[in-house]
């Protein structure tokens, strides 16, 4: 069981970003993708999630053997792919509780969603919130509206925990500045981590990886992965910066 991305070519507004990108995320593992800015890390996340601005010119992404390219974003999500947004979007007037409930019931057939009582839902929701140490009053607030960086991340992690995806991609490319937010994401990943989920953490800074221990670290450059290794690779990047990546692999891309 894996998320298998092969020969992926993605462009946005006619500019090619991902070039013959290959990556396999087996269930039960946590992978980190690191790399300089503008190398296509966020593009990878959005293209997989089916964002309409990103055009997949070539390649495939098999989620446990099923192709997800060409599907509507909501179908991709229901197949089990979750993306934690770098900048979660505000939805005024829609409470977190109602929003997550709509997402949970979207995964049920009619009989199950009719039978899904408010009591059962809140019980499940509160259990997850306790586990993630999120105060109860949080769910009455409108989704992401007026949230601090940390609260937005907390909201993303809560959604991920409630929706129990098979694969999760956490786009944390630029959020390295907010330590609080990073810690929340890291704790969430550690709580979720297990044999039933494959997790990809996308980040620019090694700092996030002080809190998460990835099984595999990938270095991305020029729209593809140029080097993979164990957690020590992240430390190498931290020590040496991205300059050497460019020197070593610049000619290849």
């Amino acid at each position: 069981m894996s998320l298998e991305i092969s020969s992926l070519n993605v462009s946005i507004a006619d500019k090619q970003i991902l070039k013959d990108f290959n990556l396999t995320i087996p269930k039960g593992e946590v992978h980190a993708i690191m790399g300089p800015n503008g190398t296509g890390k966020s593009t990878l996340a959005k293209a997989l999630a089916g964002h309409p601005d990103y055009t997949v010119n070539k390649g495939s992404a098999l989620l446990d053997g099923e192709e997800i390219f060409g599907l509507e974003p909501d179908k991709v999500a229901r197949k089990g792919l979750f993306m934690a947004f770098q900048y979660p979007v505000e939805i005024p007037g829609v409470s977190i509780a109602n929003f997550i409930r709509a997402a949970v019931t979207a995964r049920m057939n009619k009989e199950a969603s009719d039978a899904f009582s408010a009591t059962a839902y809140y019980k499940a929701l509160y259990a997850k919130m306790d586990e993630l140490k999120i105060p109860r009053e949080f769910t009455a607030r409108s989704v992401n509206e007026g949230f601090s960086g940390g609260e937005k991340k907390r909201c993303e992690i809560l959604q991920m925990a409630m929706l129990r995806p098979k694969y999760a991609i956490l786009d944390e490319t630029d959020s390295g500045l907010d330590i609080d937010a990073l810690r929340i994401v890291a704790e969430g990943v550690e709580t979720m981590r297990g044999p039933d989920i494959g997790i990809v953490v996308i980040t620019h800074y090694q700092r996030l990886l002080n809190y998460i221990k990835p099984d595999v670290v990938h270095v991305m450059y020029g729209g593809r992965i140029v080097k993979s290794g164990g957690p020590e690779l992240a430390l190498e990047l931290e020590a040496r910066g991205y300059g050497w990546v460019e020197k070593e692999f610049g000619a290849l891309v």
């Binding site: 999630a49 089916g50 964002h51 309409p52 509507e72 974003p73 909501d74 991709v76 999500a77 229901r78 979750f82 993306m83 947004f85 979660p88 979007v89 505000e90 939805i91 005024p92 007037g93 829609v94 109602n98 929003f99 997550i100 709509a102 997402a103 979207a106 995964r107 409108s142 959604q159 929706l163």
Partner: peptide, 24 residues
């Protein structure tokens, strides 16, 4: 972006639109 965000959570487009309007 609002619609994409909601769809990424598995909510179909029309329902996402309804949620946004109800929220409004």
């Amino acid at each position: 972006e609002q619609i994409f965000y909601m769809q990424q959570r598995g909510i179909p487009e029309a329902e996402a639109m309804s949620l946004a309007v109800n929220g409004f």
